[in-house]
Structure formats: structure tokens, C-alpha cells
Design a protein around this nucleic acid. Sequence first.
DNA 1: ACTTCACGGGAAAACGTTCTCCGGAAACTT
DNA 2: AAGTTTCCGGAGAACGTTTTCCCGTGAAGT
Lengths: 344, 344
Amino acid sequence: MAEVTLKDVARASGCSVATVSRVLAGTRPVGAETARAVRDAAERLGYRPNHVARALRSRSTGTVGLVLPQITNPFFPALVRELEHALHAEGRALLLADCDDDPETEAARIGALLDRQVDALLVVPADERRSRPAVAAAAARVPLVLLDRGCGAGVADSVAVDNAAGMTLVLDHLAATGRRRPCFVGAAGTASTAVERHAAYEAGVHALGPDAARRAELGDFSVEWGRAAVDRVWPSRPDALVCANDLIAAGALQQLRRLGADVPGEVAVTGFDDIPLAGLADPALTTVRQPVAELAAEAAGLLVRRPAGAAPAARRAVRLAPRLVVRGSSAPDPAAAGRAGVPA
Amino acid sequence: MAEVTLKDVARASGCSVATVSRVLAGTRPVGAETARAVRDAAERLGYRPNHVARALRSRSTGTVGLVLPQITNPFFPALVRELEHALHAEGRALLLADCDDDPETEAARIGALLDRQVDALLVVPADERRSRPAVAAAAARVPLVLLDRGCGAGVADSVAVDNAAGMTLVLDHLAATGRRRPCFVGAAGTASTAVERHAAYEAGVHALGPDAARRAELGDFSVEWGRAAVDRVWPSRPDALVCANDLIAAGALQQLRRLGADVPGEVAVTGFDDIPLAGLADPALTTVRQPVAELAAEAAGLLVRRPAGAAPAARRAVRLAPRLVVRGSSAPDPAAAGRAGVPA
DNA sequence: ACTTCACGGGAAAACGTTCTCCGGAAACTT
DNA sequence: AAGTTTCCGGAGAACGTTTTCCCGTGAAGT
């Protein structure tokens, strides 16, 4: 019942606490004889090290904080899953914080996690600009990796998908399948994903031909905005809607269906992220798949390597290549519409 | 740079460590004069209490472990969000573990969390039967609340939606809208949600009339199974598919669409949980909404109140009432199909 | 036969709290 | 005026580790 401690194991194995600690932690060679006795006793008593005491002494909790803007955003669960696996595989635990897209609670959460002495922080900043102070302050105290979104230049290491490359994949695909009058449905604001995807669209839309209009509508990353955007854009009959993420695309698909538009016959729709919903939409959504597992592995890797508050010059910005997943919503052959869905 | 500790504050305020602790924790009255001095010094030095040391001494980490079977199951993110908010509001932190639907990793995760001295555990067991040993063992050591799913009788306190009531809502609705030949598409296995929903269906299907067939197909809680089930069931032309959760229903809808079936004209489809996807499906899915916020609040409440390993007799099983959300997939008037979607 | 090591082991000091004592002074009792 | 309580504050012991010293012992080097 009562917790069995090092002292108990020491008594049972007839040696000192120090020795027991050394055997179990393997920090220093110990005589084979004693080592066996210690291990025996530990086993027999069912000794489990107390991580709290260990953390206090060694100043390392083996704990990583993850700060998300909104776990209900369907892109994150897969990311959380991979991170959890990567961290637990190294014997670290994951302290989760959700900040409801609000930079102030985000700052509070980051503070709370630091107070709990997390060894490192993973942050998906809620707002490129307003998240910055808290993130920068935290980065000075522990290794911190920005995930998925940026937070101003040189604040911390970051790992994200190569948004520009993803957008290029989309544009090339649309060009190859003969689309000529695209429209970008993106998100306003300073969020790096919004900015980068939009910029890449602007930069690459000429791939669809010299006469491709640089039309873009900006709202936010939501289904509702996807629906609203269609109402504004559909009258001008674009032949492709390039959406900045899958939620927008899902909303767009839904609204186009209501308006009786033929997808992909009249208009192709593409998303970004490849959330589970994408494969389930009707028609299934052509989108850019983020390399979630690799993002997580890369982030976890950066964390262990980096000392806290490394020189700003040494910041790394890892960009991983995405993959285009072609589904029914952009099927080159309209006859295949609604049938080409690839299960999520 | 260096952490400022109680000792520093004591020195700066000219009193002892004990007094500083008392002032800051408010555990014992302290002279107004000294109190001010201490608070001043603490403020000035930017003192932040070290939770690890506090935890070691007071044997309470202020930390709660949450063990999920699969965070990528779209039902969980909303639950996690509410739990996170409820716990952080009380100054506790959330240690998250995902066990990939595998009882063995689940046991390992539970062990890891216990080793980290969590004050309490919230567990959504992966398997009613195989999760039991680990859960029971953990429940003997810390307050433990089972969430959403059960894990054998009397193992721990539990909080879940009233599955039977939810199924009754569905059946009553179908009966009221004239459906007479329903088919249940559920999940096999011992998971309590699967069992309870199925049982409630069997018990209540007569509400659709004396001749309602007690037909049921059992697979698992997945989109794929929803699709497969339709292939098996559609030939016999049921006029309602009562699915055990929204994922199954989404798969069913997708497959029915491929087969050219008219939903809700020919056949109604209902789900369970009201995950975000439900409102986005085409037609939008009629389903049973779980009171997620209340579940979280109730679970968090139970945790703080319960001492570890309370007498089995005193276990509580809280059941919360769900709500029926009627959408297009069961619209009484087929003409309204595809248009009655309520945004998620 | 003396140093000089390498080696295995123990005692005890940290780590930053909380909390139990204990003592002195002031405030009440008789 | 002596006893009794209350109040405020400090010294110091815990909490369970890790880690720094230090002390033997025996083996190797002179």
C-alpha cells in the first residue's frame, strides 16, 4: 500500500540508498553481486521510481507541454496522436493545453506549463502576432518548437509543412486538368498558414495560363466561411475553387451542392491538410496531405536536441514536403465524379 | 535567470522561509505587516512557486491523467477540450495518453501516469473486458473515473451518456415519422456503448409497430463498416438505418449515395454522438447529441470529491441525458432532403 | 615495501517546498 | 500577580531522489 522507496529497496538488499540509485539508474558501474541483489529486491518489492522526487533533484520532469489553439480543429487530433506516441516512446509525458484560439489564455497556459517545469514546449500559436510575446518569453526558458504555424521570425525553432510546395502541387494539378478560371478561398489575418498559402497561390496561379484571374476571397478557416465564400464567388462561375484548408473546402462543397453546381464537372474544389473529413465529403475532396507523422517526429527530435534559449541565429525552420491526394472533387473526368472517393 | 525560490523571497523580505510559504499559500494567518513585505518581495523578484517541489512535499501534483483509446476518433476532441478547460480552471493540468485502441498500451500508459504521481485518472477504456485489470488496479491507487464507456461492474465511478435514452429518442422519432422497417447497424464486441445501444434498440424497436423487424448487423465503430453494412442490408430495402454512431452513419450515407438510394426519401439514416462531421454530411445527419460539456464537468467534479479506492459499494454511475438533433437524413418530408442541414 | 590508482561502496548534501514543532510576547483569565 | 491562552514567527525535519564527496580495499606500478 505505502509507496516503496529507494530506502526500502536499500534495506531489503542490504546496501545504501546511493548504491540502489546507481544500480537502477545505471549512472555508475556497480559490483555484479550487489547489482543483482538490488535488482532482486527492487523487483520483489515492486519498486517504482518516484518521478516527482527525481524531477526535483535532477531538474528535469521528463514532461513536454503541448499548446494548441483548438483541439476541436480536426487537423490536430492526428498531430496530437503522433506527438503522444513519439514522446511516450522516449519515456516523456505530454501535458496538453487548449487555448480556445485566444492568445491571452494561450499565454496563461504557457505560463502554467512553465510553472510545472515542463522540459520543453510545443506550441501551435493561435495568432502570428499576438502570440509572439508569450512564445518568445517561453522560448528563452525552455526548448520550444513552433508547430504548423509560425510566430514572427526568429522566435523559436519551427516545424511545418511546406505550404508553398503544397499550393504548387494543387495549381499544377489544376493546370494539368485544364482548369483556367480559378479562385482562391483563403483566410485573412496574419496566421502564417493563411499568408503562405495565399502568397503561393498568387505566385503560382499563372500556371493555369496567362489569362488566369488572380481572384481571391479571404475569410477564416471555417466551414461557415466556405459556404459564405461560395455565395460570393459562384455567380462569376470560376472553374476551380482553391481553398486554404479542408474545412473551407467542405463548406464550399456543401454550398455548391445546395446551389446545384456540378462538382467537379463545372467546378473543381481543392482543400489543404487532408483531415479525415476530406475523404468523406461528396465528392471526396482533392487535397494536400500534411506529413503528420514526420512533423511530429521532427518536432520531437528538435526538442531533445535543443538547449533552452539557443542563439537566435541558430534557429531552425524545418519544412516538410506535402503530398497531393487527388479525389473526386477535382476529377479530370466529370463522369467519374462522386465515385472516385478514396476512403479517409 | 536563475529560478527565484522561497529562500530568495525570504531573504529579500527579511523573514523565514516558513513565513513566506505561509503568506503565499495562505495556510496560516500571518501578521499584516510581514505579509505585505513578503508579497512585495515575491512580486518584485517575480517569484513563481515550483510545482515539483510542492508536489513532492505535499504528495499532490495537481495533475490529472486522461487515457483515450484513440484521439483521432472525432468524438473525443470535444471531450478533451471540455476536460482541459474544467481542469485548468481548477489549476490542475492534463496529462494526455492515447493508446491506439490497444489494451496493452493502455495498461502501460496508465502505469506511466501513475508513476508520474497523477492525482487522478480519467479513462475511456479501450475494451470493456481487457481493459479491466489495469483500470481496477489503478482505481485502487488514485481516484479514477470512467468516461463514456464502462469497464465491468463496480470497477470505478463512471460518467456517460444515457445510451438507452438516446436510442429511445431515435426510435420514437422514426416511429413518429412513419418508418416501419428499420435495421440496426451496430458494433460487435463488449464495448459498453456498443452493447447498450444495441440492447436499447432491441428493446424499443417495437415502437415502430408490431411488425418492425429486429434486424441488426454488427461490425465496428468505423466508416468502413458503415459502407460495408449498407452493401449487406440495402438489398432488403429497410426504410431506416439506425447506426450505433456517427462514423458508421457517415459510411452508410456515403455508400447509399453511391448506390443511388434516396435519403431520406427511401431510407432514413441516424447516428449517435453528433460529431462535427454529422452536420456536414449530405444529407446532414440526424443524430443523438452527447452532452459533452456536462460529461466533462461531472467527471471533473467526481475526481475532486472522491478519495482513492473508495468502497466499491459507494461507486457512482452518472448517466446524463442526451438530446436528439433532427437533420436532413431523417427529414419527414423527402422534399426537404439535402436542404435541412443544420450546420455543425 | 612504498606510492598510486581504479574500483566498489556509504554518508550526506542538495533540490524547493510544506508542516510540525517550539519559543517568546502579548493578551486574556482568575 | 501568576497562570493561561492566543498569536506570530523561526528552526528544521521531512518528501524521494541524484550526486558529490569521501573512505576503504586490493592491485598495479615504482
